[in-house]
């Protein structure tokens, strides 16, 4: 009876606690986003959260060079459409490379049995553990040799190599969950192995491909360090570098010369493709299947 009494009290209060925690979490996460959204349409934006009396679209016009910027960064040209195009080229190329290569590698790792497979899987994770910053100069020298300076495809290849290990893990997990019987049945019905791969396995792994596409697109779309060292010409900047070149005058001193309105408009445009991609892939994101860690080290 005592136990039941305790349960009667704790159950509803736990329920209330659940909603309290949820609201606190959403508050932490959404406040900056609300500020971002409101300031985009604010004629004189600032760090304060304030609903504008007369919402404008002027900030967008400033970005595309239709209206001149008022003060501060006015001297600096903004090549918004070019930056957007460059970001798209980098992101799409990264996405294609990562999806194709991780699907191939994931399938091979899932179906092959050989000695040292678990060590290979572990070293895939460990290979990226050297901090990016220490690798920067060797990477720079390597890219000069390969002619990757001022080359958007080169940037995409370097970004893709950084994103590959985790995506291979995710892809292998998806392939592991596709039963071999499915393929074998296709073989019995006269499919060659290659056509079985394309007609049976790939459609079944479709969600995995979508998930990998989502993550790798975002990796290419938002990357900052790689274009920072590889791209020199301003018209070849992706948006991430463009933002920094216009709004960041000295590192550590951001905010001193920030025009909040255009910056927020830029961020909103910048975030839009990833939101669309999320909307397209949202059904699959909750079903990520990871390869099990069977590392024998």
């Amino acid at each position: 009876m005592y136990k039941g009494f305790l349960k009667n009290i704790t159950e509803p209060s736990l329920e209330v606690l659940r909603y309290v925690i949820l609201i606190a979490m959403l508050f932490y996460i959404l406040t900056p986003l609300v500020w971002l959204f409101i300031t985009t349409f604010h004629p004189r934006g600032g760090p304060y959260l304030e609903i504008p009396e007369k919402p404008t679209l002027e900030n967008f016009l400033i970005l595309f060079g239709i209206v001149k910027m008022r003060v501060g960064a006015a001297a600096h040209p903004v090549y918004m459409h070019k930056w957007l195009l460059n970001s798209f080229i980098i992101a799409i190329t990264t996405m294609i490379i990562v999806v194709v290569l991780s699907a191939m590698a994931g399938y091979a790792l899932s179906r092959l049995k050989f000695r040292g497979k678990s060590i290979l899987m572990a070293s895939l994770l460990i290979i990226g553990f050297m901090p990016t910053i220490a690798k920067l100069l060797p990477l720079y020298k390597l890219c000069i040799m390969l002619g990757f300076i001022n080359n958007l495809i080169g940037v995409a290849i370097v970004v893709a190599s950084g994103a590959l290990p985790v995506q291979i893990w995710i892809m292998k997990g998806f392939f592991d969950h596709i039963p071999r019987d499915l393929e074998e049945q296709a073989w019995i019905f006269g499919c060659s192995k290659l056509s079985a791969l394309f007609r049976v396995v790939m459609p079944a792994a479709g969600p995995g491909l979508m998930v990998v596409a989502f993550f790798s697109f975002l990796a290419g779309w938002g990357n900052f360090t790689v274009p920072l060292i590889l791209i020199r010409t301003e018209t070849l900047f992706p948006v991430s570098l463009g933002i920094a070149s216009v709004f960041l005058h000295h590192p550590g001193e951001i905010g001193l010369a920030v025009e909040y309105g255009p910056l927020c408009a830029l961020s909103l445009i910048y975030a839009l493709p990833s939101i669309i991609l999320y909307y397209l892939t949202r059904r699959y994101l909750m079903h990520i299947k990871l390869a099990r860690i069977e590392v024998g080290v």
Binding site: P32, L36, T39, P47, G222, I243, I254, G255, Y260, A271
Partner: peptide, 17 residues
Amino acid sequence: LPYTIPGTVIPYIWLSM
């Protein structure tokens, strides 16, 4: 939603916060 905000923009947003 925060995941779709690119990494270079996040410091600006928070600086204003």
